[in-house]
Design a protein around this nucleic acid. Structure first.
Lengths: 220, 220
DNA sequence: ATCCGACCAATAATCGATTATCTTCCCAGC
DNA sequence: GCTGGGAAGATAATCGATTATTGGTCGGAT
């Protein structure tokens, strides 16, 4: 299944930030680059659009979405709305296996350097994936695949926005935040865990506000 | 854009229940039926899969999904988890325009007969659409498009399951439930509204339990 | 009689080429 | 000099045909 590979490649390229927001995704070029026909590229593009990783302009082709600051804030709010509720479910229902996986995911996250020197000021791919897995593992305790799909979609959108805007944020204690999140969850302290998660998401959103690609950091 | 029409047609056909769960969606047949080429059918199918309205089996084509009873319960739980939270947001934030649209949507729903004599024991299309619009309008007050997209996806899945299983449920007072929901929301009584909505969703789920296509109603 | 393997029909996946649509740039007319 | 119409090039959308994979079936060997 060629279209699967092309889809994965395209998705990774967009998430990695290989294209600038608003860039046209030309089927012809992509097809030539990957040595496949237009049909498979088109199929991959349609899938990508379905995931919100590209826009489709009728009769004008596909393009990398240019999220507005407003859109990003909406995504962040949606996460603040849903994820704490899922976390409470996870804390209530998670079994020993879940606890073990949370510890493992946190260990991996804590041991993965957030920045690689050769990747400039962006987070490293390895850290981003460890970060995602920690958050997802935490919520997996809720045991509901439908809710986890919702999480996946929101995470993707959220991560895309961050790739285009996030820079090193010296003042932030990400390690400590994740540590407190892990401890509260495993201590089955739902109120504290939900509060820590909400604050974590709020801080993440705050970092990005006014710092998207099309609206550089304000100096106030 | 032909694929758009084909996609809409296919989506409606699946939602209408024109295909049995598990049925293969053969590109060739669909292409001949609609008088288009394979490429556009394929594109439409990929989109449909992205919405969860069809399954894709690698090298074995596309098929109408056969939701298990468990899957349906997970969808219902996800709705019970998220929608009451959205409703609280809507009640807190909704403006006068929202109130007016809620009243309008409820009026339309209450005035639309739930069953058409020529459609047998299924709900009528008109009622299903009015029902969807009432619920959606109610939640639109939350003002967050991301959350509303989540609602749309869950509603689609939920409705699909119901189309295959729901029959007349004589004992149920759907009109009254919706009326109480409207009143509580417009009275800005978040606790009552959330409780009514949760009960509404729980009842909807209960109706379907044990009555999916592949597991006919239990007699017990 | 049963099991294994090679043929075969069906169809999923892909391709190369064609048609339709949009964009741009140029030139005639005002 | 400016504006509107129109051809030309680029690209999106679609098509018809080709290739690859699957699942079933028929035949032979044990």
């Amino acid at each position: 299944m060629l279209s699967e590979q092309v889809y994965a490649h395209l998705r990774d390229a967009i998430m990695r930030g290989d294209f600038a927001p608003g860039d046209a995704l030309k089927p012809q070029d992509l097809a030539k680059d990957q040595g496949v026909s237009l049909a498979v590229v088109r199929e991959a593009l349609v899938r990508v659009v379905g995931e919100g990783l590209a826009d489709r302009l009728p009769n004008r082709g596909f393009a990398v979405p240019a999220f507005s600051d407003r859109r990003w804030q909406e995504i962040a709010e949606a996460r603040r709305t849903i994820e704490p509720v899922m976390l409470r479910m996870a804390i209530e229902r998670g079994d020993v296996d879940w606890e073990a996986r949370v510890r493992a995911a946190h260990h991996r996250l804590a041991r993965t350097p957030a920045y690689a020197q050769d990747e400039g000021e962006h987070y490293s791919d390895a850290w981003a994936e460890a970060h995602r897995l920690f958050h997802r593992t935490l919520l997996e305790g809720c045991g509901n695949p439908v809710l986890l799909e919702v999480f996946d979609r929101m995470w993707t959108a959220s991560e895309l926005a961050r790739r285009w805007s996030a820079r090193r944020t010296p003042g932030r204690d990400a390690v400590g935040e994740h540590g407190r999140l892990e401890e509260a969850a495993l201590a089955r302290d739902a109120d504290t865990a939900a509060e820590v998660l909400t604050r974590h998401l709020t801080l993440t959103a705050a970092v990005l506000t006014g710092r998207t690609h099309d609206e550089p950091a304000k100096e106030t």
